[in-house]
Design a protein around this nucleic acid. Sequence first.
DNA 1: AATCTATTTAGAGATATTTCTAAATAGATT
DNA 2: AATCTATTTAGAAATATCTCTAAATAGATT
Lengths: 94, 94
Amino acid sequence: MGFPETFKALSDPVRREILVLLKDKKLSAGEIGKHFEMTGATISYHLSQLKKADLILESKYKNFIYYELNISVFEEIMLWFTQFGGKENDKKNE
Amino acid sequence: MGFPETFKALSDPVRREILVLLKDKKLSAGEIGKHFEMTGATISYHLSQLKKADLILESKYKNFIYYELNISVFEEIMLWFTQFGGKENDKKNE
DNA sequence: AATCTATTTAGAGATATTTCTAAATAGATT
DNA sequence: AATCTATTTAGAAATATCTCTAAATAGATT
């Protein structure tokens, strides 16, 4: 939806952990929930925030809703960070 | 102070704008404040959050307190993002 | 030393966020 | 069709965040 939402979504530790879980595999809401000591409703809330921020995509299969990372938005965020320079983000030009 | 604080600090639009202002030059609290329609007290609050997150460093000169970016923490954050892959963050290995 | 200027600290109000329980949806299985 | 399973939605409570005004600090200037 836009930068503000994306950064807000990234500001919560639970949501960042969900993103890490989704790093290498699609997972259902229930599978994600098992990694936390929280109700399914709370997990659902966090997933909705990540979805609103376009950081994840969802797809349905049978009863389940599967979530996966939306890499393109990660790239946009990375791009925002490159403006601050640091240890050469421009290796390509060396 | 650690990832959670850093991401929290980055989640506010005013604070992100402050970081952009500091991108190419050191600025005093007052100079930063001029860019916003907020009281100095509020700016001071945001600066304290950025400082707590180690995103900025401060130094005194006369009456003024000058702020500048702390690049190393930006680098740590960038590193966190690289775990999500995306459009090759490993150009070096091509 | 008195005052001025730059900034922070304290306290309070408004709003936003995170979490829960209970109820609603919706598809799958019997 | 009745029920079971997975997930979301609604509403409420607790906590955190952002902003303000007023007061405190501290160094600079007169």
